Computed example of a mutant assay.
Amino acid sequence: MITMMWWGYSGMSGWGYALMGVSTVLFWGLLAAVIVLATRSASRGVRTGASAPAPEELLAQRFARGEIGSEDYYAGLEVLRARHDHPIGR
């Protein structure tokens, strides 16, 4: 009967319980981070499959939607076409 009194006692101190709690939180946090990073990586791979539109196409789309006027459109085209003369681009 005396052995039944200690049944289930693991002999773990307060530090053992604290370490167990912290390691459990770290495990689930790490697992969640891995899932989030894997999901982001997979979605980024799908997104980069399509090529990005050229800057001139973006400018034309903004002009077609009415976001910029004709002066801004032609000024933007001039800047885009002249940028290869910039010293940084060489």
Rank of each mutant, 00 (worst) to 15 (best):
residue 60 A to E: 13
residue 70 S to C: 01
residue 72 D to V: 04
residue 61 Q to I: 03
residue 45 G to D: 04
residue 64 A to D: 11
residue 39 T to R: 14
residue 26 L to G: 03
residue 46 V to A: 09
residue 72 D to C: 04
residue 2 I to R: 04
residue 16 G to D: 15
residue 82 A to W: 00
residue 44 R to I: 04
residue 16 G to C: 07
residue 20 M to Y: 07
residue 47 R to T: 00
residue 19 L to P: 00
residue 47 R to Q: 02
residue 25 V to H: 04
residue 77 L to I: 03
residue 35 I to S: 05
residue 56 E to R: 06
residue 42 A to T: 06
residue 28 W to L: 08
residue 49 G to T: 10
residue 43 S to T: 15
residue 3 T to G: 12
residue 35 I to H: 03
residue 18 A to R: 08
residue 85 D to V: 11
residue 69 G to P: 02
residue 61 Q to M: 11
residue 65 R to Q: 10
residue 79 V to C: 05
residue 56 E to N: 07
residue 62 R to H: 00
residue 24 T to N: 08
residue 12 M to L: 12
residue 32 A to Q: 09
residue 1 M to F: 08
residue 13 S to D: 14
residue 61 Q to E: 13
residue 59 L to T: 00
residue 79 V to N: 06
residue 26 L to F: 04
residue 50 A to K: 08
residue 58 L to E: 15
residue 31 L to Y: 04
residue 35 I to E: 07
residue 67 E to H: 07
residue 67 E to M: 03
residue 54 A to N: 05
residue 61 Q to A: 14
residue 41 S to P: 04
residue 86 H to G: 05
residue 78 E to W: 00
residue 82 A to M: 05
residue 63 F to Q: 10
residue 23 S to C: 09
residue 66 G to H: 10
residue 10 S to P: 01
residue 12 M to Y: 05
residue 66 G to T: 08
residue 24 T to G: 14
residue 27 F to E: 06
residue 83 R to C: 02
residue 64 A to M: 04
residue 63 F to W: 11
residue 5 M to W: 06
residue 74 Y to A: 13
residue 52 A to V: 15
residue 22 V to M: 14
residue 38 A to W: 13
residue 28 W to F: 12
residue 20 M to W: 11
residue 72 D to S: 15
residue 7 W to T: 12
residue 59 L to W: 00
residue 17 Y to R: 08
residue 75 A to C: 03
residue 46 V to S: 05
residue 50 A to G: 06
residue 6 W to F: 11
residue 46 V to E: 05
residue 65 R to A: 11
residue 36 V to D: 14
residue 77 L to C: 03
residue 42 A to F: 06
residue 47 R to P: 00
residue 87 P to A: 09
residue 65 R to E: 08
residue 12 M to N: 09
residue 4 M to Q: 14
residue 13 S to W: 01
residue 74 Y to E: 10
residue 46 V to F: 01
residue 38 A to C: 10
residue 57 E to T: 08
residue 10 S to K: 15
residue 58 L to F: 01
residue 59 L to C: 00
residue 7 W to L: 14
residue 77 L to H: 01
residue 69 G to L: 03
residue 89 G to Q: 13
residue 81 R to G: 01
residue 90 R to Y: 03
residue 2 I to H: 05
residue 79 V to G: 04
residue 2 I to E: 13
residue 52 A to Y: 12
residue 52 A to I: 12
residue 81 R to L: 02
residue 28 W to H: 06
residue 29 G to H: 02
residue 3 T to H: 10
residue 78 E to S: 15
residue 54 A to K: 08
residue 79 V to S: 11
residue 29 G to D: 02
residue 85 D to M: 14
residue 87 P to C: 07
residue 54 A to R: 12
residue 28 W to M: 12
residue 69 G to C: 11
residue 60 A to N: 09
residue 50 A to L: 13
residue 69 G to N: 15
residue 88 I to W: 02
residue 43 S to E: 15
residue 60 A to G: 10
residue 45 G to L: 04
residue 19 L to V: 13
residue 51 S to I: 15
residue 82 A to Q: 10
residue 85 D to S: 13
residue 38 A to L: 14
residue 47 R to I: 00
residue 3 T to Q: 11
residue 64 A to G: 07
residue 70 S to P: 07
residue 10 S to T: 15
residue 23 S to W: 05
residue 39 T to H: 11
residue 34 V to N: 12
residue 26 L to Y: 02
residue 41 S to N: 13
residue 56 E to G: 08
residue 29 G to I: 05
residue 81 R to K: 02
